[in-house]
Simulated scan of single mutants.
Amino acid sequence: MPESHDVPFERTAIETDSSPTLAAVHHESDSDDWLVFCHGLRSDKSGSYERRCRRAREAGYNAVRFDARGCGESDGEFVDSTLEARLADLRRVADYFDPDSYALFGSSFGGKVALHAAAEDDRVDAVATRAPVTTTETFDEYRATVASEGEWTFDTGERIDRRFFDALDRYPFADVVGSLAVPVAIFHGGADDVVDPADSFDAARRLETDVLVERFAGEGHRFSAAAEDRLLERLFGWLEWAGNRE
């Protein structure tokens, strides 16, 4: 059975029951292989991530899904959940479970988190993404409003402010290009109107490591059930290759 964990995300001298925590779920496998999932900007660890973790466990992975601060069941405010904060959250989760090595999977904004984390953490041995954010232009609509009004509020009430863009600008994709040495897989819907599929092909051309890019014709930013099935088959086949490469 999957096991829930509360992972403190702020380092304090004494961590107590009132310390803010990240909600994480571990799908345990009798294996040394680990796969950690990073959800998108306004997503959480539920839904498709639960399914992906079940499939990962079937494939022999210890799978971990978690809510970034301010998302899902985790403590904190969404407005504080910048790229830097999410990278710190991922690091805390990885440190908490403490695998010798692990692979990452990230969707959309979670793909950007995964790519930058893989460039910074020597424990990461492969990174897979679906519709990853690789350019700041993805958020231009929000940036203009934040510049003029101080914040953007989504229809669900979640907010981002200047800190979101300050952090985004501090992590250009060029940092990944210059640092990432592990294999990368990119899966992208050909009809995605949220993150431009052309960005993924451009990212693949720029990366200096092994890259697999697959365009899912007719799929948008959210995949259909059939496309999700295909994604999972391709993902775990690729991870097997990545784990066995010389």
Rank of each mutant, 00 (worst) to 15 (best):
V64A: 14
T82E: 05
P99L: 05
G106L: 06
E58H: 11
C53R: 01
D95V: 01
F78L: 04
Y96H: 14
R54V: 08
A68M: 11
F109S: 03
F37V: 06
E84T: 09
L90A: 04
V113N: 08
A56C: 08
V113M: 10
A88C: 13
D44R: 15
E77P: 04
G111V: 01
L41V: 02
S74D: 08
Y61R: 01
S107H: 15
R86H: 00
S46L: 12
G40Q: 05
E84A: 07
G60Y: 05
D100C: 11
R52S: 14
S107T: 14
D67S: 14
R91G: 10
E84K: 11
D80E: 07
A68Y: 15
L41I: 11
G111C: 00
S48G: 13
L83R: 00
G111L: 03
V64H: 02
R42V: 08
R92L: 09
D44I: 06
E73H: 12
V113I: 09
E84Y: 11
R69K: 05
T82M: 08
A56P: 05
F109C: 08
S108I: 01
D100L: 13
E58C: 08
G72S: 10
H116K: 08
E77Y: 15
G111M: 04
L41Q: 04
C71K: 10
